[in-house]
Amino acid sequence: MLTIEDTLEGDVKIICPTGKLDTLTAKTFEAHLQSCVEDGNGPLLVDMSGVDYVTSFGLRSILIVAKKLAPFGRKFILFATNPSVMDVLRVSGFLKIVTVAENQDAAFDMAGLSQTASSDP
């Protein structure tokens, strides 16, 4: 199962999925990201701290959205990935395709944004 909540940090939308990103949930995740792509024009930041498992279907969803944003110069940044998800991204070669930041502050820096609201843990 996967749940997705969006939060706002100032005027920046952060997508926060929780659960497994697999065969059953990847299409939902992809559709949600697609709607965020269509609704905005800034970077797309995804807090991966709640995702504990990613399959090839989940990777495919990430790749599709990253490719849609690239021609427009929009950044797509995953952040706060747990070690097992980071291993999947590393082994699959996705670290060459998608930007991954250690935490939200680093994601904002990589996106060229300033954090306007406090992000105390």
Rank of each mutant, 00 (worst) to 15 (best):
V100P: 06
D105Y: 09
V65C: 01
F108R: 08
T55K: 05
A117S: 15
V85T: 10
V51G: 09
A70G: 06
P83D: 14
E30N: 02
R74V: 02
Q104G: 14
I4Q: 03
Y53H: 12
V91G: 00
E38M: 09
S35W: 03
I15Q: 07
D47A: 11
M1G: 11
K96E: 13
F76D: 04
K20H: 12
L33G: 04
G19D: 04
F94L: 12
E5D: 13
K13W: 06
G40L: 00
K96D: 15
Q115S: 13
I4S: 09
C16R: 15
T99K: 13
T116W: 02
L89P: 05
A101F: 05
L2G: 06
I97Y: 01
L21M: 15
F57M: 13
K68W: 11
L45I: 14
E102H: 11
T7H: 04
A101W: 07
P83I: 06
C36S: 12
S84L: 14
E30Q: 15
G42I: 04
G40A: 08
I64M: 08
C16W: 04
F72H: 14
V65K: 02
I15P: 02
A107E: 03
V54Q: 00
C36I: 03
N103C: 10
H32S: 02
T7E: 13
E9C: 12
G93Q: 05
S114P: 00
I4D: 07
T3C: 07
I64T: 14
K27G: 07
I14D: 01
V12F: 00
A80I: 05
K27H: 05
N103A: 06
